[in-house]
Amino acid sequence: MKYNIEEVENYLSENKDEALDIASKILDRDVTMPSLNGMIGSKNGTYKVEPKNYNNADEYYEDWLKSHNELFENDKECNYERSVHRIHRLLHNSFLNSYLKMFLVRTFLRKNR
């Protein structure tokens, strides 16, 4: 799919409050845009995905999600909650799943201008 940076940014801006509210309820804490950015946006190194290595945003997102799921499976038995567990909980909400995809699409578009 072809994405337009302005449309993606508008979507994220228009849906930010709802996304943060849902994330706050799921995680039972106040989730702000900086904390969401830290949780999602800081995972490229951990998930071994670099936007510049992909031809399109969908490939980048698919590999990000695949890497997330692999790390989650490997970390399931951890006796404390790590960021991969929190992200996994957020991704189970359909609205947040779509929002976080657009969040990562924006990352791809910004890095590949």
Rank of each mutant, 00 (worst) to 15 (best):
K2Q: 13
N4D: 14
I5E: 07
E6N: 15
E9R: 15
L12Q: 14
K16S: 09
L20H: 14
I22F: 02
A23K: 13
S24Q: 08
D30L: 08
M33W: 13
P34C: 08
S35R: 13
S35I: 10
L36M: 14
N37L: 08
N37F: 12
G38L: 06
G38I: 01
M39S: 09
M39A: 04
G41Y: 13
S42C: 06
K43T: 09
N44M: 03
N44A: 04
N44F: 04
G45N: 15
Y47I: 00
P51C: 04
K52S: 07
N53F: 11
Y54A: 03
Y54W: 11
N55K: 14
N56P: 09
D58M: 10
D58V: 05
E59S: 12
E59K: 14
D63A: 00
D63K: 09
K66F: 07
K66V: 00
S67E: 02
H68M: 01
F72V: 00
F72D: 00
F72W: 07
E73R: 12
D75H: 08
E77F: 05
E77K: 09
C78E: 08
N79R: 10
Y80K: 02
H85Y: 04
I87G: 01
H88R: 08
R89Y: 01
R89T: 00
R89Q: 04
L90Q: 07
L90M: 01
L91Y: 08
L91I: 10
S94F: 02
S94Y: 02
S94L: 01
F95T: 02
L96Q: 02
M102K: 15
M102A: 06
F103P: 05
L104T: 07
T107R: 15
R113W: 07
R113N: 14
